[in-house]
């Protein structure tokens, strides 16, 4: 169940038009259009290989698009200089599928790293307080001096999300937040995503093929099929469709 929050439909934070991306002969995205409004959680669903992760990597400027425009917070990502892109990225939080925690650093150092790199003037005490506050928000303050290898999959996901929250992002990009987690931990992560939306007033794109996660976290669902948006709308609207691909996706998820 999503928490109560405000969506401002007058303010688009992400605006994607006619997005194409191929890798060699493999066409991944074939004309994707997508809007995300301020305060909105948009879930992008689709089978493996439909370009869901590629989509958010293009939004974050990690991959260049072949064609189309990607407008994030009013800036065209492909037109930005290196420094402008870096500044834009400070407003994006990217939670990676495998958490991508820095192996050689403790949890404290993982969280301090983005802040110390971007705000070198911040005092040690203020940084320490911020780390503790953020870890407390994800419920893992007691793991502050552990190494990433000592954490479970769910804890690593939480720390990955906490690290992105250190810079107080306006937009969160979650890549398969519940992949590989047991159902109980998945629910905890879903709740955390909703808490982040409420507490930090973020907008988000959540990439998943877990319908329980989609239902719990999404204000709106977008279903990708063969590199295009096949269906968009609320959970009920999308899965009320007679489209066999949509139905197949629904049945496979909920049979389990």
């Amino acid at each position: 169940m999503a928490y109560a929050h405000q969506i401002d439909y007058a303010q688009r934070v992400i605006d994607i038009r006619g997005l194409y991306k191929s890798f060699g002969p493999l066409k991944v995205l074939q004309g994707v259009d997508l809007d995300v409004f301020k305060g909105e959680n948009v879930v992008v669903l689709g089978r493996s290989g439909t370009g869901k992760s590629v989509l958010i990597k293009i939004i974050a400027g990690l991959l260049p698009p072949d064609a189309g425009t990607v407008n994030v917070l009013g800036r065209h990502v492909s037109e930005l200089s290196e420094e402008e892109l870096r500044m834009l990225r400070l407003k994006l939080g990217f939670s990676f599928q495998n958490s991508a925690l820095y192996d050689s650093m403790s949890i404290r150092e993982n969280l301090e790293f983005p802040v110390s790199r971007n705000m070198p003037g911040m005092s040690k005490t203020a940084l320490d307080d911020l780390v503790k506050e953020t870890l407390d928000a994800v419920g893992l303050l007691n793991k502050i001096d552990r190494m990433p290898s000592e954490l479970s999959g769910g804890q690593r996901k939480r720390i990955g999300i906490a690290r992105t929250l250190m810079l107080k992002p306006e937009i969160m990009l979650y890549d398969e937040p519940t992949a590989g987690l047991d159902p109980v931990t998945s629910v905890e992560i879903n709740n955390l995503i909703n808490e982040v939306q409420e507490r930090y007033n973020t907008s988000a794109i959540i990439i998943t093929h877990d319908l329980a996660c989609a239902k719990a976290t999404g204000d709106r669902l977008v279903m990708l099929f063969e590199g295009k948006v096949a269906k968009a709308g609320s959970f009920k609207e999308v899965f009320a469709s007679d489209d066999p691909e949509v139905q197949k996706f629904y049945n496979y998820n909920f049979i389990q």
Binding site: R89, F94, F96, A100, L101, P114, R117, T164, L167
Partner: peptide, 13 residues
């Protein structure tokens, strides 16, 4: 393991 991408998206150069 996408750690470099994670640094990139957090503006950590």
């Amino acid at each position: 393991t996408e750690q470099i991408d994670a640094m990139e998206v957090s503006g950590a150069r």
